[in-house]
Design a protein around this nucleic acid. Structure first.
Lengths: 206, 206
DNA sequence: CCTGCTCTCCACCTTTCGGATGATCCGCCG
DNA sequence: CGGCGGATCATCCGAAAGGTGGAGAGCAGG
């Protein structure tokens, strides 16, 4: 029997996952969490084999952090990320946080069930759509921005000037310009708005 | 007995809504549609009282168009929009397309059920969060950009420089700056990236 | 009619940004 | 260890963007 905790802020989604899992003889839904904190608490108390974790809670991406905390428990359950969309960066973030797999909510039920069983067995469970995307990434000369560069770009996308960014990050504007120059070079653009647009298209920003 | 068709591309969401509705004595799920076309076809064939319609299918917002087509049927069922997020513009688009209400997927189940019953009775069903947002819109002196201003802003959002925009629209860059200056003033920002960000938040751009 | 409003267009001046170059410090890896 | 990449900063300069002001066209309303 695979005991599962569902962590998602959407009641509708929780009900859906529960309905799908309850229909299986070898899977039992041990509990539901509507917030990241609840997810961690439930995981500790119920000690399930697996946590199905959404990445977006409310409008924030707190799922990765919750995944990290769940995996840091004394008896860490496997974590299977179940989310709406695949903004490239999120996938890596989730895997880095200790997720065993990454499924999309628009996946057919049999994929979801296969993913749950694979993850509970300690195997990796990547949705075909995700796996394909990761491969496509590997193949192409990948555009990788450093954490700091993305941080700067995020603020720029919100409309911050170089001086604003410098103040917020406690660095000089010269450094901000340096970071942006690198970003421009990597993305093949020449302006901040162009960089934001390109980053959005690549899934680096949302 | 309220007969309902569920239109959503996520199997998990369909299962969730079905589970919630099946538990009610006075509501029956007549069918499920995974695509906009399917939703229209099912609505015509099954003639339900109500269609629960998602706005996003795949990565496109085809729900509004589907709503329009459903409402154009010979015996048009009411349409209740059930979506993830509330990008201001979408709400108006959906209502304009003939939706009777607008619910969020993170709404508690009782709100969903109340919405279904209200919509099936021909009443308006707006989630409190949505209603509040609409009211806030009414109250505030609404930000309206002229067609030309939006045109300029669109190009800017794609990363175009003032000179690029000027060339594309066959005007001088001085004029582009003037349009942007008006946009800045209306949106209360001081930079082009800020304007793009603000416009996106207001649903003017996507 | 003509006042007032919006939209569109433009010129001039100031500030900011982007591009180039170079430098220091640090951690990682072969 | 020596090299490499990331993060930090500096300076200089030309090119863009932003701020201010104004002019003409079209239209609603008194």
């Amino acid at each position: 029997m695979i005991r599962v905790v569902i962590a998602d802020d959407h009641p509708v989604v929780r009900a859906g996952v529960r309905a799908l899992l309850d229909a299986e003889a070898d899977i039992e839904v041990a509990g539901e969490a509507a917030t990241p904190d609840e997810a961690v608490a439930l995981s500790e108390r119920l000690a399930p084999e697996l946590v199905l974790m959404d990445l977006q809670f409310g409008d924030r991406a707190a799922g990765a952090e919750a995944t990290r905390r769940v995996r840091a428990l004394a008896a860490p359950p496997y974590v299977l990320v179940l989310t709406n969309y695949d903004t490239d960066g999120d996938i890596l973030g989730a895997v880095e946080a200790g997720a065993s797999g990454y499924l999309l909510k628009d996946a057919p039920p049999h994929e979801l069930l296969a993913g749950v069983r694979a993850a509970a067995a300690g195997q990796s469970a990547l949705a075909p759509a995700i796996a394909g995307r990761l491969l496509a990434r590997m193949r192409e000369p990948r555009v990788t921005l450093s954490a700091r560069e993305i941080e700067v770009l995020h603020l720029v996308a919100r409309g911050a000037s170089n001086a604003d960014v410098a103040a917020l990050l406690h660095i000089t504007d010269a450094t901000v310009k340096s970071h942006l120059a690198h970003v421009f070079s990597k993305l093949g653009v020449t302006s901040r708005t162009g960089a934001v647009s390109a980053a959005r298209a690549l899934g680096i920003l949302r």
